[in-house]
Design a protein around this nucleic acid. Structure first.
Length: 472
RNA sequence: GGCCCGUUCGUCUAUCGGUUAGGACACCUGGUUUUCAACCAGGUAAGAGGGGUUCGACUCCCCUACGGGCUGCCA
Protein backbone atom coordinates (compact mmCIF):
# COMPACT_ATOMS: atom_id res chain seq x y z
CA UNK A 1 0.00 0.00 0.00
CA UNK A 2 1.15 3.48 -0.80
CA UNK A 3 0.91 6.34 1.66
CA UNK A 4 -2.56 7.50 2.57
CA UNK A 5 -3.71 10.18 0.19
CA UNK A 6 -5.95 11.99 2.64
CA UNK A 7 -3.30 14.59 3.36
CA UNK A 8 -2.53 15.22 -0.29
CA UNK A 9 -4.05 18.25 -2.03
CA UNK A 10 -7.57 17.59 -3.23
CA UNK A 11 -8.00 16.38 -6.79
CA UNK A 12 -11.48 15.72 -8.13
CA UNK A 13 -12.66 14.89 -11.61
CA UNK A 14 -15.74 14.75 -13.76
CA UNK A 15 -15.76 11.77 -16.09
CA UNK A 16 -18.74 11.69 -18.46
CA UNK A 17 -19.13 9.28 -21.31
CA UNK A 18 -19.67 11.13 -24.59
CA UNK A 19 -22.87 9.49 -25.72
CA UNK A 20 -25.09 12.57 -25.68
CA UNK A 21 -25.53 16.08 -24.33
CA UNK A 22 -24.53 17.02 -20.78
CA UNK A 23 -27.35 15.77 -18.58
CA UNK A 24 -28.56 18.07 -15.83
CA UNK A 25 -27.60 15.38 -13.30
CA UNK A 26 -24.13 15.19 -14.81
CA UNK A 27 -23.91 18.96 -14.61
CA UNK A 28 -24.64 18.81 -10.90
CA UNK A 29 -22.08 16.05 -10.38
CA UNK A 30 -19.51 18.19 -12.15
CA UNK A 31 -20.56 21.17 -10.04
CA UNK A 32 -20.08 19.28 -6.78
CA UNK A 33 -16.62 18.15 -7.87
CA UNK A 34 -15.73 21.67 -8.97
CA UNK A 35 -16.98 23.24 -5.76
CA UNK A 36 -15.17 20.71 -3.60
CA UNK A 37 -11.83 21.14 -5.37
CA UNK A 38 -12.02 24.90 -5.82
CA UNK A 39 -13.03 25.45 -2.22
CA UNK A 40 -9.93 23.63 -1.05
CA UNK A 41 -7.37 24.98 -3.44
CA UNK A 42 -7.35 21.67 -5.24
CA UNK A 43 -7.67 20.63 -8.84
CA UNK A 44 -10.74 19.75 -10.88
CA UNK A 45 -9.98 17.49 -13.82
CA UNK A 46 -12.03 16.48 -16.83
CA UNK A 47 -11.84 13.07 -18.44
CA UNK A 48 -13.97 11.80 -21.29
CA UNK A 49 -14.82 8.13 -20.89
CA UNK A 50 -14.84 7.20 -24.53
CA UNK A 51 -13.75 3.58 -24.40
CA UNK A 52 -17.06 2.51 -25.94
CA UNK A 53 -16.26 3.27 -29.56
CA UNK A 54 -19.74 2.33 -30.71
CA UNK A 55 -21.52 4.97 -28.70
CA UNK A 56 -18.93 7.70 -28.25
CA UNK A 57 -19.05 10.68 -30.60
CA UNK A 58 -16.95 13.83 -30.91
CA UNK A 59 -20.19 15.82 -31.14
CA UNK A 60 -21.19 14.60 -27.69
CA UNK A 61 -17.80 15.55 -26.30
CA UNK A 62 -18.18 19.02 -27.76
CA UNK A 63 -21.68 19.33 -26.30
CA UNK A 64 -20.44 18.33 -22.85
CA UNK A 65 -17.64 20.88 -22.97
CA UNK A 66 -20.09 23.57 -24.06
CA UNK A 67 -22.43 22.69 -21.21
CA UNK A 68 -19.69 22.85 -18.61
CA UNK A 69 -18.40 26.10 -20.03
CA UNK A 70 -21.83 27.68 -19.91
CA UNK A 71 -22.24 26.57 -16.30
CA UNK A 72 -18.95 28.27 -15.56
CA UNK A 73 -17.20 25.10 -14.46
CA UNK A 74 -13.59 25.42 -15.54
CA UNK A 75 -11.32 22.43 -15.39
CA UNK A 76 -7.58 22.18 -14.84
CA UNK A 77 -5.25 20.92 -17.54
CA UNK A 78 -6.18 19.22 -20.76
CA UNK A 79 -9.26 17.12 -21.30
CA UNK A 80 -8.16 13.51 -20.94
CA UNK A 81 -9.42 10.95 -23.44
CA UNK A 82 -9.76 7.59 -21.80
CA UNK A 83 -9.58 5.84 -25.15
CA UNK A 84 -6.17 7.31 -25.84
CA UNK A 85 -4.88 5.73 -22.63
CA UNK A 86 -5.88 2.20 -23.66
CA UNK A 87 -2.30 0.99 -23.88
CA UNK A 88 -1.68 2.00 -20.29
CA UNK A 89 -4.86 0.19 -19.21
CA UNK A 90 -3.75 -2.95 -21.01
CA UNK A 91 -0.36 -2.63 -19.38
CA UNK A 92 -1.97 -2.63 -15.94
CA UNK A 93 -4.11 -5.64 -16.86
CA UNK A 94 -0.99 -7.55 -17.79
CA UNK A 95 0.73 -6.45 -14.64
CA UNK A 96 -2.12 -7.95 -12.66
CA UNK A 97 -1.52 -11.15 -14.62
CA UNK A 98 2.08 -11.12 -13.41
CA UNK A 99 0.99 -10.37 -9.88
CA UNK A 100 -1.43 -13.27 -10.04
CA UNK A 101 -4.41 -11.07 -9.21
CA UNK A 102 -5.91 -11.65 -12.64
CA UNK A 103 -5.94 -14.51 -15.13
CA UNK A 104 -6.51 -15.31 -18.77
CA UNK A 105 -9.93 -16.73 -19.53
CA UNK A 106 -10.50 -18.54 -22.81
CA UNK A 107 -14.21 -19.12 -22.40
CA UNK A 108 -16.17 -17.88 -25.40
CA UNK A 109 -19.28 -15.77 -25.12
CA UNK A 110 -21.28 -18.77 -26.30
CA UNK A 111 -19.90 -20.88 -23.47
CA UNK A 112 -20.77 -18.19 -20.97
CA UNK A 113 -24.32 -17.94 -22.30
CA UNK A 114 -24.67 -21.70 -22.15
CA UNK A 115 -23.35 -21.74 -18.60
CA UNK A 116 -25.88 -19.12 -17.52
CA UNK A 117 -28.92 -20.73 -19.10
CA UNK A 118 -27.91 -24.06 -17.62
CA UNK A 119 -27.74 -22.52 -14.17
CA UNK A 120 -31.08 -20.82 -14.65
CA UNK A 121 -32.59 -24.09 -15.76
CA UNK A 122 -31.41 -25.56 -12.48
CA UNK A 123 -33.45 -22.89 -10.76
CA UNK A 124 -30.65 -20.56 -9.79
CA UNK A 125 -31.91 -17.01 -9.81
CA UNK A 126 -28.53 -15.48 -10.20
CA UNK A 127 -25.95 -17.00 -12.46
CA UNK A 128 -22.57 -15.35 -12.04
CA UNK A 129 -20.21 -16.97 -14.46
CA UNK A 130 -17.49 -19.02 -12.85
CA UNK A 131 -14.62 -19.41 -15.26
CA UNK A 132 -12.95 -22.81 -15.51
CA UNK A 133 -9.68 -20.99 -16.27
CA UNK A 134 -9.41 -19.26 -12.92
CA UNK A 135 -6.88 -21.72 -11.57
CA UNK A 136 -5.86 -23.40 -14.79
CA UNK A 137 -2.26 -24.31 -15.48
CA UNK A 138 -0.80 -21.95 -18.14
CA UNK A 139 0.55 -25.05 -19.84
CA UNK A 140 -2.99 -25.96 -20.78
CA UNK A 141 -3.74 -22.59 -22.38
CA UNK A 142 -5.00 -22.95 -25.96
CA UNK A 143 -3.83 -20.73 -28.79
CA UNK A 144 -7.04 -18.76 -28.85
CA UNK A 145 -8.43 -15.31 -28.01
CA UNK A 146 -8.80 -14.64 -24.31
CA UNK A 147 -10.00 -12.00 -21.92
CA UNK A 148 -8.29 -11.00 -18.70
CA UNK A 149 -10.45 -11.42 -15.63
CA UNK A 150 -9.92 -10.33 -12.07
CA UNK A 151 -9.28 -13.10 -9.62
CA UNK A 152 -11.92 -11.81 -7.20
CA UNK A 153 -11.89 -12.90 -3.57
CA UNK A 154 -14.51 -15.58 -2.99
CA UNK A 155 -15.02 -15.04 0.70
CA UNK A 156 -15.09 -12.18 3.14
CA UNK A 157 -16.51 -8.78 2.42
CA UNK A 158 -15.53 -5.52 0.80
CA UNK A 159 -16.09 -2.36 2.79
CA UNK A 160 -16.90 0.89 1.06
CA UNK A 161 -16.39 3.90 3.29
CA UNK A 162 -18.61 6.37 1.54
CA UNK A 163 -18.79 10.00 2.60
CA UNK A 164 -22.44 10.22 1.62
CA UNK A 165 -23.82 6.73 1.99
CA UNK A 166 -21.84 5.73 5.05
CA UNK A 167 -20.31 2.27 5.45
CA UNK A 168 -21.52 -0.08 2.78
CA UNK A 169 -20.66 -3.72 3.11
CA UNK A 170 -20.64 -5.93 0.02
CA UNK A 171 -20.19 -9.67 0.39
CA UNK A 172 -17.40 -10.83 -1.88
CA UNK A 173 -19.35 -13.91 -2.92
CA UNK A 174 -21.69 -11.59 -4.84
CA UNK A 175 -18.79 -10.24 -6.88
CA UNK A 176 -17.74 -12.23 -9.91
CA UNK A 177 -14.45 -12.35 -11.76
CA UNK A 178 -15.09 -9.31 -13.87
CA UNK A 179 -13.41 -8.86 -17.20
CA UNK A 180 -10.85 -6.06 -17.26
CA UNK A 181 -9.42 -6.55 -20.74
CA UNK A 182 -11.58 -7.64 -23.65
CA UNK A 183 -10.52 -10.32 -26.12
CA UNK A 184 -9.64 -7.59 -28.62
CA UNK A 185 -7.21 -6.18 -26.09
CA UNK A 186 -9.27 -3.11 -25.20
CA UNK A 187 -9.91 -2.22 -21.56
CA UNK A 188 -13.24 -2.27 -19.88
CA UNK A 189 -14.64 0.71 -17.97
CA UNK A 190 -14.07 -0.80 -14.52
CA UNK A 191 -10.36 -1.08 -15.19
CA UNK A 192 -9.99 2.19 -17.06
CA UNK A 193 -11.56 4.38 -14.36
CA UNK A 194 -9.36 2.97 -11.67
CA UNK A 195 -6.16 3.25 -13.66
CA UNK A 196 -6.99 6.77 -14.79
CA UNK A 197 -8.07 7.96 -11.36
CA UNK A 198 -4.88 6.55 -9.91
CA UNK A 199 -2.62 7.99 -12.61
CA UNK A 200 -4.37 11.35 -12.42
CA UNK A 201 -3.92 11.30 -8.65
CA UNK A 202 -7.59 11.74 -7.98
CA UNK A 203 -8.18 11.92 -4.23
CA UNK A 204 -11.96 12.24 -4.14
CA UNK A 205 -14.35 10.41 -6.41
CA UNK A 206 -17.67 12.24 -6.31
CA UNK A 207 -20.16 10.66 -8.71
CA UNK A 208 -23.70 9.34 -9.09
CA UNK A 209 -24.82 6.61 -6.72
CA UNK A 210 -25.50 4.34 -9.66
CA UNK A 211 -21.80 3.61 -9.24
CA UNK A 212 -22.02 2.65 -5.59
CA UNK A 213 -22.03 -1.08 -6.27
CA UNK A 214 -19.30 -0.62 -8.83
CA UNK A 215 -17.09 0.91 -6.17
CA UNK A 216 -16.68 -2.54 -4.64
CA UNK A 217 -15.51 -3.97 -7.95
CA UNK A 218 -13.19 -1.06 -8.48
CA UNK A 219 -11.76 -1.41 -5.02
CA UNK A 220 -10.74 -4.92 -6.08
CA UNK A 221 -8.60 -3.38 -8.79
CA UNK A 222 -7.00 -0.91 -6.39
CA UNK A 223 -6.23 -3.78 -4.05
CA UNK A 224 -4.92 -5.95 -6.86
CA UNK A 225 -2.45 -3.22 -7.80
CA UNK A 226 -1.66 -2.21 -4.25
CA UNK A 227 -2.92 1.30 -4.85
CA UNK A 228 -4.52 3.61 -2.29
CA UNK A 229 -8.29 3.81 -2.59
CA UNK A 230 -9.68 7.35 -3.07
CA UNK A 231 -12.34 8.87 -0.87
CA UNK A 232 -15.74 7.86 -2.20
CA UNK A 233 -18.80 10.09 -2.29
CA UNK A 234 -21.77 8.64 -4.18
CA UNK A 235 -24.45 11.22 -4.63
CA UNK A 236 -28.12 10.43 -5.32
CA UNK A 237 -29.46 10.99 -8.81
CA UNK A 238 -31.84 13.81 -9.68
CA UNK A 239 -35.46 12.87 -10.26
CA UNK A 240 -38.26 14.55 -12.16
CA UNK A 241 -41.07 16.46 -10.41
CA UNK A 242 -43.00 13.19 -10.12
CA UNK A 243 -40.21 11.44 -8.26
CA UNK A 244 -39.30 9.17 -11.15
CA UNK A 245 -35.87 9.08 -12.67
CA UNK A 246 -35.39 12.21 -14.74
CA UNK A 247 -36.05 11.47 -18.38
CA UNK A 248 -37.07 13.16 -21.60
CA UNK A 249 -40.75 13.13 -20.76
CA UNK A 250 -40.09 15.49 -17.84
CA UNK A 251 -38.96 18.13 -20.30
CA UNK A 252 -35.47 19.54 -20.25
CA UNK A 253 -32.76 17.08 -19.25
CA UNK A 254 -29.81 18.69 -21.00
CA UNK A 255 -27.83 21.54 -19.47
CA UNK A 256 -27.83 23.41 -22.75
CA UNK A 257 -31.61 23.35 -22.83
CA UNK A 258 -31.59 25.38 -19.63
CA UNK A 259 -29.35 27.91 -21.24
CA UNK A 260 -31.72 28.12 -24.20
CA UNK A 261 -34.63 28.57 -21.79
CA UNK A 262 -32.85 31.64 -20.48
CA UNK A 263 -31.81 30.74 -16.97
CA UNK A 264 -28.73 32.70 -15.88
CA UNK A 265 -25.75 30.42 -15.22
CA UNK A 266 -25.10 31.82 -11.74
CA UNK A 267 -28.67 31.06 -10.71
CA UNK A 268 -28.45 27.62 -12.22
CA UNK A 269 -25.30 26.92 -10.24
CA UNK A 270 -26.88 28.13 -7.01
CA UNK A 271 -30.02 26.06 -7.56
CA UNK A 272 -28.11 22.93 -8.50
CA UNK A 273 -25.84 23.34 -5.48
CA UNK A 274 -28.83 23.44 -3.16
CA UNK A 275 -30.45 20.47 -4.88
CA UNK A 276 -29.45 17.65 -2.61
CA UNK A 277 -27.03 19.64 -0.51
CA UNK A 278 -27.59 22.05 2.35
CA UNK A 279 -25.61 24.17 4.73
CA UNK A 280 -27.92 25.31 7.47
CA UNK A 281 -30.38 27.84 6.11
CA UNK A 282 -28.16 29.13 3.31
CA UNK A 283 -30.27 29.55 0.18
CA UNK A 284 -28.94 32.33 -2.02
CA UNK A 285 -25.19 32.52 -2.41
CA UNK A 286 -22.48 33.25 -4.94
CA UNK A 287 -20.19 30.54 -6.23
CA UNK A 288 -17.36 31.99 -4.14
CA UNK A 289 -19.51 31.59 -1.05
CA UNK A 290 -20.55 28.11 -2.14
CA UNK A 291 -16.90 27.08 -2.42
CA UNK A 292 -16.36 28.15 1.16
CA UNK A 293 -19.38 26.27 2.44
CA UNK A 294 -19.47 23.16 0.28
CA UNK A 295 -18.69 19.89 2.00
CA UNK A 296 -19.45 16.22 1.51
CA UNK A 297 -21.26 15.95 4.83
CA UNK A 298 -23.97 18.30 3.64
CA UNK A 299 -24.99 16.07 0.74
CA UNK A 300 -28.34 14.35 1.22
CA UNK A 301 -28.86 10.63 0.82
CA UNK A 302 -32.19 10.72 -0.96
CA UNK A 303 -32.74 11.59 -4.61
CA UNK A 304 -33.91 15.17 -5.13
CA UNK A 305 -36.64 16.34 -7.44
CA UNK A 306 -36.30 19.18 -9.86
CA UNK A 307 -38.52 22.15 -8.98
CA UNK A 308 -38.73 24.73 -11.73
CA UNK A 309 -40.47 27.29 -9.51
CA UNK A 310 -37.59 27.32 -7.10
CA UNK A 311 -35.11 27.36 -9.96
CA UNK A 312 -36.83 30.49 -11.27
CA UNK A 313 -36.89 32.13 -7.89
CA UNK A 314 -33.20 31.45 -7.36
CA UNK A 315 -32.42 32.77 -10.82
CA UNK A 316 -34.42 35.90 -10.05
CA UNK A 317 -32.16 36.66 -7.12
CA UNK A 318 -29.08 36.19 -9.24
CA UNK A 319 -30.44 38.38 -12.04
CA UNK A 320 -30.94 41.15 -9.53
CA UNK A 321 -27.49 40.64 -8.01
CA UNK A 322 -25.70 40.48 -11.33
CA UNK A 323 -23.29 43.08 -12.59
CA UNK A 324 -24.98 45.13 -15.33
CA UNK A 325 -22.29 44.67 -17.95
CA UNK A 326 -21.96 40.96 -17.22
CA UNK A 327 -25.70 40.50 -17.47
CA UNK A 328 -25.82 42.29 -20.79
CA UNK A 329 -23.05 40.04 -22.00
CA UNK A 330 -24.91 36.95 -20.87
CA UNK A 331 -28.07 38.25 -22.52
CA UNK A 332 -26.27 38.39 -25.86
CA UNK A 333 -25.08 34.82 -25.37
CA UNK A 334 -28.62 33.79 -24.57
CA UNK A 335 -29.97 35.35 -27.76
CA UNK A 336 -27.47 33.30 -29.74
CA UNK A 337 -28.15 30.10 -27.82
CA UNK A 338 -31.89 30.49 -28.20
CA UNK A 339 -31.58 31.21 -31.89
CA UNK A 340 -32.94 34.73 -31.55
CA UNK A 341 -31.66 37.69 -33.51
CA UNK A 342 -28.98 39.83 -31.93
CA UNK A 343 -29.67 43.30 -30.57
CA UNK A 344 -29.46 46.16 -33.05
CA UNK A 345 -27.23 49.12 -32.23
CA UNK A 346 -30.20 51.14 -31.04
CA UNK A 347 -31.46 48.27 -28.89
CA UNK A 348 -27.97 47.81 -27.44
CA UNK A 349 -27.80 51.41 -26.31
CA UNK A 350 -31.26 51.31 -24.79
CA UNK A 351 -30.74 47.93 -23.17
CA UNK A 352 -27.64 49.17 -21.46
CA UNK A 353 -29.74 51.89 -19.84
CA UNK A 354 -32.59 49.55 -18.99
CA UNK A 355 -30.73 46.58 -17.50
CA UNK A 356 -30.22 48.24 -14.10
CA UNK A 357 -33.96 48.28 -13.42
CA UNK A 358 -35.12 45.40 -15.62
CA UNK A 359 -32.89 42.94 -13.81
CA UNK A 360 -34.58 43.63 -10.50
CA UNK A 361 -37.77 41.87 -11.40
CA UNK A 362 -36.82 39.41 -14.14
CA UNK A 363 -36.13 35.78 -13.34
CA UNK A 364 -34.99 34.65 -16.75
CA UNK A 365 -33.74 36.24 -19.94
CA UNK A 366 -37.02 35.73 -21.81
CA UNK A 367 -38.74 37.51 -18.94
CA UNK A 368 -36.22 40.33 -19.11
CA UNK A 369 -36.78 40.59 -22.83
CA UNK A 370 -40.53 40.62 -22.26
CA UNK A 371 -40.17 43.58 -19.91
CA UNK A 372 -37.84 45.20 -22.41
CA UNK A 373 -40.38 45.00 -25.22
CA UNK A 374 -40.79 48.82 -25.16
CA UNK A 375 -37.17 49.29 -26.16
CA UNK A 376 -37.07 46.48 -28.68
CA UNK A 377 -39.90 47.78 -30.87
CA UNK A 378 -39.55 50.48 -33.44
CA UNK A 379 -42.10 52.99 -34.69
CA UNK A 380 -44.88 52.85 -35.39
CA UNK A 381 -45.49 50.86 -32.20
CA UNK A 382 -48.05 48.13 -32.75
CA UNK A 383 -50.82 48.19 -30.16
CA UNK A 384 -52.15 45.08 -28.53
CA UNK A 385 -55.88 44.85 -27.88
CA UNK A 386 -55.92 46.26 -24.37
CA UNK A 387 -53.51 49.03 -25.22
CA UNK A 388 -55.59 50.06 -28.20
CA UNK A 389 -58.65 50.17 -26.00
CA UNK A 390 -56.98 52.57 -23.57
CA UNK A 391 -56.19 54.96 -26.39
CA UNK A 392 -59.67 56.42 -26.74
CA UNK A 393 -60.38 59.94 -28.01
CA UNK A 394 -60.11 61.50 -24.59
CA UNK A 395 -56.80 59.85 -23.86
CA UNK A 396 -55.42 60.85 -27.21
CA UNK A 397 -56.34 64.43 -26.43
CA UNK A 398 -54.46 64.24 -23.19
CA UNK A 399 -51.38 62.83 -24.89
CA UNK A 400 -51.58 65.55 -27.51
CA UNK A 401 -51.51 68.26 -24.88
CA UNK A 402 -48.61 66.55 -23.12
CA UNK A 403 -46.29 66.50 -26.08
CA UNK A 404 -45.38 70.21 -26.21
CA UNK A 405 -44.56 70.24 -22.52
CA UNK A 406 -42.06 67.44 -22.97
CA UNK A 407 -40.18 69.37 -25.61
CA UNK A 408 -38.58 71.76 -23.18
CA UNK A 409 -38.44 69.65 -20.06
CA UNK A 410 -35.11 68.53 -18.79
CA UNK A 411 -34.97 64.78 -19.25
CA UNK A 412 -34.90 63.32 -15.74
CA UNK A 413 -37.43 61.67 -13.52
CA UNK A 414 -37.42 64.65 -11.17
CA UNK A 415 -38.31 67.00 -14.00
CA UNK A 416 -40.81 64.69 -15.68
CA UNK A 417 -42.77 63.82 -12.57
CA UNK A 418 -44.28 67.26 -11.94
CA UNK A 419 -45.21 67.59 -15.61
CA UNK A 420 -47.16 64.36 -15.65
CA UNK A 421 -48.80 65.12 -12.33
CA UNK A 422 -49.78 68.51 -13.62
CA UNK A 423 -51.46 67.04 -16.70
CA UNK A 424 -53.31 64.50 -14.59
CA UNK A 425 -54.53 67.26 -12.29
CA UNK A 426 -55.66 69.41 -15.20
CA UNK A 427 -57.82 66.63 -16.54
CA UNK A 428 -58.99 65.69 -13.09
CA UNK A 429 -57.72 62.14 -13.31
CA UNK A 430 -55.46 60.07 -11.12
CA UNK A 431 -51.96 59.27 -12.25
CA UNK A 432 -53.02 55.71 -12.94
CA UNK A 433 -55.49 56.94 -15.56
CA UNK A 434 -52.75 58.86 -17.27
CA UNK A 435 -50.23 56.05 -17.09
CA UNK A 436 -52.43 53.63 -19.05
CA UNK A 437 -52.49 55.53 -22.34
CA UNK A 438 -48.87 56.50 -21.83
CA UNK A 439 -47.89 52.85 -21.58
CA UNK A 440 -49.96 52.12 -24.66
CA UNK A 441 -48.36 54.89 -26.67
CA UNK A 442 -44.82 54.13 -25.58
CA UNK A 443 -44.89 50.34 -25.46
CA UNK A 444 -48.04 49.28 -27.25
CA UNK A 445 -49.11 47.26 -24.24
CA UNK A 446 -50.61 47.76 -20.82
CA UNK A 447 -48.07 45.83 -18.79
CA UNK A 448 -44.72 47.59 -18.85
CA UNK A 449 -41.99 48.88 -16.57
CA UNK A 450 -42.46 52.29 -14.93
CA UNK A 451 -43.38 55.01 -17.44
CA UNK A 452 -40.50 57.15 -16.19
CA UNK A 453 -37.99 54.38 -16.67
CA UNK A 454 -39.23 53.80 -20.19
CA UNK A 455 -39.16 57.48 -21.09
CA UNK A 456 -35.64 57.91 -19.83
CA UNK A 457 -34.40 54.88 -21.74
CA UNK A 458 -35.79 55.66 -25.17
CA UNK A 459 -35.20 59.40 -24.90
CA UNK A 460 -37.13 62.55 -25.57
CA UNK A 461 -37.35 62.44 -29.36
CA UNK A 462 -38.51 58.85 -29.45
CA UNK A 463 -41.07 59.45 -26.70
CA UNK A 464 -42.54 62.46 -28.44
CA UNK A 465 -42.63 60.63 -31.74
CA UNK A 466 -44.42 57.68 -30.21
CA UNK A 467 -46.91 59.95 -28.46
CA UNK A 468 -47.62 61.71 -31.72
CA UNK A 469 -48.05 58.39 -33.50
CA UNK A 470 -50.59 57.32 -30.91
CA UNK A 471 -52.49 60.55 -30.63
CA UNK A 472 -52.82 61.48 -34.27
C1' G B 1 -34.75 -13.40 -8.47
C1' G B 2 -30.12 -11.81 -5.60
C1' C B 3 -27.38 -7.79 -3.57
C1' C B 4 -27.00 -2.49 -2.40
C1' C B 5 -29.10 2.49 -1.36
C1' G B 6 -33.05 5.61 0.04
C1' U B 7 -38.11 7.49 2.62
C1' U B 8 -39.19 14.98 7.53
C1' C B 9 -44.47 20.24 4.99
C1' G B 10 -46.67 19.78 -2.37
C1' U B 11 -40.95 20.62 -3.41
C1' C B 12 -35.52 21.50 -1.65
C1' U B 13 -33.99 20.84 3.20
C1' A B 14 -32.44 21.85 9.03
C1' U B 15 -32.43 18.58 13.18
C1' C B 16 -26.98 14.73 14.37
C1' G B 17 -32.03 11.05 21.71
C1' G B 18 -35.17 15.89 24.97
C1' U B 19 -37.19 21.86 19.88
C1' U B 20 -44.08 24.98 20.04
C1' A B 21 -39.91 19.93 14.37
C1' G B 22 -36.69 25.58 11.87
C1' G B 23 -35.69 27.93 6.92
C1' A B 24 -36.52 28.44 1.52
C1' C B 25 -39.76 27.74 -2.94
C1' A B 26 -44.83 27.14 -4.06
C1' C B 27 -49.75 28.26 -2.21
C1' C B 28 -53.42 31.50 0.66
C1' U B 29 -54.44 36.39 3.18
C1' G B 30 -53.25 41.46 3.98
C1' G B 31 -50.02 45.82 2.96
C1' U B 32 -47.43 48.87 -0.62
C1' U B 33 -48.06 50.44 -5.74
C1' U B 34 -48.74 53.68 -11.88
C1' U B 35 -50.11 48.19 -14.73
C1' C B 36 -47.41 43.30 -14.25
C1' A B 37 -43.80 42.09 -11.26
C1' A B 38 -40.77 43.07 -7.25
C1' C B 39 -41.08 44.18 -2.15
C1' C B 40 -43.07 43.89 3.20
C1' A B 41 -46.21 41.33 7.03
C1' G B 42 -48.93 37.02 8.37
C1' G B 43 -51.00 32.04 7.48
C1' U B 44 -51.93 26.70 5.82
C1' A B 45 -48.59 22.51 5.64
C1' A B 46 -44.23 17.16 7.45
C1' G B 47 -41.26 12.71 10.39
C1' A B 48 -44.25 6.05 4.88
C1' G B 49 -46.59 1.94 8.16
C1' G B 50 -45.66 -1.54 12.17
C1' G B 51 -42.68 -3.46 16.01
C1' G B 52 -38.72 -2.85 19.42
C1' U B 53 -34.35 -0.23 22.49
C1' U B 54 -34.79 3.98 25.98
C1' C B 55 -37.08 7.85 31.40
C1' G B 56 -37.57 9.94 26.41
C1' A B 57 -37.30 8.72 19.66
C1' C B 58 -37.72 12.13 13.24
C1' U B 59 -33.01 10.72 15.22
C1' C B 60 -30.65 3.85 17.17
C1' C B 61 -32.29 -1.59 15.73
C1' C B 62 -35.75 -5.02 13.05
C1' C B 63 -39.87 -6.02 9.66
C1' U B 64 -43.21 -4.32 5.81
C1' A B 65 -44.53 -1.01 1.88
C1' C B 66 -42.94 2.19 -1.77
C1' G B 67 -38.94 4.40 -4.84
C1' G B 68 -34.05 3.90 -7.00
C1' G B 69 -29.48 1.37 -8.39
C1' C B 70 -26.26 -2.82 -9.61
C1' U B 71 -26.30 -7.74 -11.30
C1' G B 72 -22.59 -7.01 -19.66
C1' C B 73 -16.30 -8.65 -23.53
C1' C B 74 -21.93 -0.58 -21.69
C1' A B 75 -20.21 3.47 -19.18
Amino acid sequence: MTAPISSAPVVTRFAPSPTGFLHIGGGRTALFNWLYARGRGGKFLLRIEDTDRERSTPEATAAILRGLTWLGLDWDGDVVSQFERRDRHAEVAHEMLVRGTAYKCFSTQEEIATYRSAREAEGASYAAFVSPWRDADPATYPDAPYVIRMKAPRTGETLIEDQVQGRVVIKNETLDDMIVLRSDGTPVYMLAVVVDDHDMRVTHVIRGDDHLNNAARQQMVYDAMGWAVPTWAHIPLIHGPDGKKLSKRHGATGVEEYQAMGYPAAGMRNYLTRLGWAHGDAEIFTSAEAMQMFDLAGIGRAPARLDFKKLENTCGHHMAMADDAALLHELRAFLTAAGLSALTDVQEVRMKEAVPFLKKSAKTFPELLEKAAFLMVSRPVAQDEKAAASLDTVSRGILKSLTPRLRNASWSKDALEPILNEIAAEYGIGFGKLAAPLRAAIAGRTVTPSVYDMMLVIGRDEVIARLEDASS
